[in-house]
Design a protein around this nucleic acid. Sequence first.
DNA 1: AATTTGTCTAGTGAGTTGCTCAAGATTTCG
DNA 2: CGAAATCTTGAGCAACTCACTAGACAAATT
Lengths: 141, 141
Amino acid sequence: MKFSKKSEYGLRALLELCDTYGGRVLQRHEIAERQNIPVEFLEQILLALKRAGLLASRRGVRGGYALIKSPEEITLGQVIRILDGPLAPISCVSKTAYQKCADCPYAAKPSCPLQQAMGEVRDAIANILDHYTLSRFAHSK
Amino acid sequence: MKFSKKSEYGLRALLELCDTYGGRVLQRHEIAERQNIPVEFLEQILLALKRAGLLASRRGVRGGYALIKSPEEITLGQVIRILDGPLAPISCVSKTAYQKCADCPYAAKPSCPLQQAMGEVRDAIANILDHYTLSRFAHSK
DNA sequence: AATTTGTCTAGTGAGTTGCTCAAGATTTCG
DNA sequence: CGAAATCTTGAGCAACTCACTAGACAAATT
């Protein structure tokens, strides 16, 4: 039931990028050094965030990465879903990636007893993470 | 961010055992068949729950497993922690298995920005799962 | 003693995690 | 233009975890 290093690194990298939002770009090695993240691994993360539309990048000598959405628009939930997949603790209660359980004897019946509890957990997690924006961390370094 | 099959199977097995609580014992193959769980895998789960004090067992001809705590006393949180480990999404916010993050630059400083959010998530999950007892599912088959 | 159960330990194949490496594309600067 | 700096892409890999299997063993019942 843990988040991966990928999410953790991704969030820490975004915290750095928040601090220079609107200003200069940051290069991978700057972020990596400040946040203590293996640079090549960080790169994959930054690229995933770029493909998801959170970051822009420029190659070449004065290249680097920068946020293209404002910190108020980016939630922890978004970031974690990009890097770690759906938040739901079991897929039969996921809203973004629902899947019927294959082997559960309750799957066919009107209501699975576990589904209700797990649904509540999913909602609680999503409620927190989808309302936590990066701006809430700004300059809290 | 998912729970394992182990937890899911464990909870489903406990639902069966709730139904016969106070009455007869259930054998592994009965539970396995009804809940569609590979019997040898289920066994490991039942043994873990036994070692944790939730179940008793008897060997031999009329052997089997039975709950030794009442369904009101067993919470989903307990079960999941036994089978899946701590609930916290990152170990630096776990109450049952705290560990300082090694590489995080915020680890030393008074407050890590992510820790607050993750702590809230942990509390939300624990609040739900530690208050959901097995008795809430009884006879909802 | 034979059978039926649970107990324990180890193994195993597939997939994931966390990370590394190397070749290539793009931009800037001299 | 050419060299250097940077991002880009894709492959590879060791270690681990997950979900399960197998087999020898212990105890209870008949």
